[in-house]
């Protein structure tokens, strides 16, 4: 069994007095695509913030390869090869398309992804490279967000709600491109509301409910009933 690239053990997360995650145990194996599903408020975004370091956690709760990253800052974690496509894309409005991509490369990791590779994946971005990122359509902005994360040449990439707010046809295109992106040996975590999309591209799935893991299984074997139970907590 390959070593996990990312491992969470007894992960708790708090916003002030409010506890959002309760003892979450989870792992991602090398080269694996994992999906995390769950209703609004189940703790998916909090989990992403904990992994990427936007939220600090107790010692030993998040390990990345050989490092305990639970108390590192986000920029320190990014250098280790962890990148995220954030929910709602969150491009930098005062940067052009090209600059948004360039800033992804700021961590200075080498690998297959550079401007040319991203332009090859999403040719439209090369045409629009000098435009303000805000002038693009939602789908094109999502391409920039994905390209920006790839530019860091990460070993593990997190996709947070990439289909949110996009037209179905665009979602289809993006999901069509995903295997090609992840196929280069990267591990990935896909957080999705759209369960069937998530299951279609992932090998394993976790479901979160009220801050706890309510289901874990192989994406092709979990049943609809198991999922709806884990999702809504209805027996």
């Amino acid at each position: 069994m390959p070593e996990p690239i990312l491992q969470m053990q007894g992960l708790d997360a708090h916003y002030g007095d409010f506890q959002a995650l309760y003892g979450v145990d989870m792992h991602v194996e090398q080269g694996e695509v994992l999906s995390i599903i769950g209703a609004n408020g189940a703790g998916k975004t909090t989990l992403m913030r904990s992994i990427t370091g936007l939220l600090t956690n107790g010692p030993g709760q998040v390990r990345y390869r050989d490092h305990d990253i639970s108390q590192l800052r986000a920029d320190e974690i990014a250098v280790h090869g962890l990148a995220m496509v954030p929910e709602g894309r969150q491009l930098f409005p005062s940067l052009s398309v090209r600059e948004n991509l360039m800033i992804g490369a700021q961590v200075g990791r080498s690998g297959p992804w550079d401007l040319q590779a991203v332009y090859k994946l999403f040719p439209i971005l090369e045409e629009r490279k000098d435009q303000a990122s805000t002038s693009l359509s939602g789908g094109q902005q999502q391409m920039v967000a994905i390209g920006r994360a790839l530019m860091a040449n990460p070993d593990l990439i997190l996709f947070d709600e990439i289909s949110l707010g996009l037209a179905p046809i665009i979602i289809r295109d993006i999901y069509k491109a995903l295997p090609g992106i992840i196929g280069t040996g990267m591990s990935a975590i896909i957080v999705e509301q759209d369960i069937s999309k998530a299951l279609s591209v992932s090998a394993r799935v976790y479901c979160l409910q009220e801050g706890r893991v309510s289901l874990e299984g192989a994406s092709d074997t979990v049943s609809r009933d198991d999922i709806s139970r884990a999702y809504f907590g209805i027996e």
Binding site: T52, L54, A74, M84, Q90, F92, L95, G104, Q106, V107
Partner: peptide, 16 residues
């Protein structure tokens, strides 16, 4: 400019 736009996301890009 990136940090001015969005501090959290800039941190994710490795900017302290």
């Amino acid at each position: 400019r990136a940090v001015s736009d969005n501090q959290d996301i800039a941190q994710l890009m490795g900017l302290n």
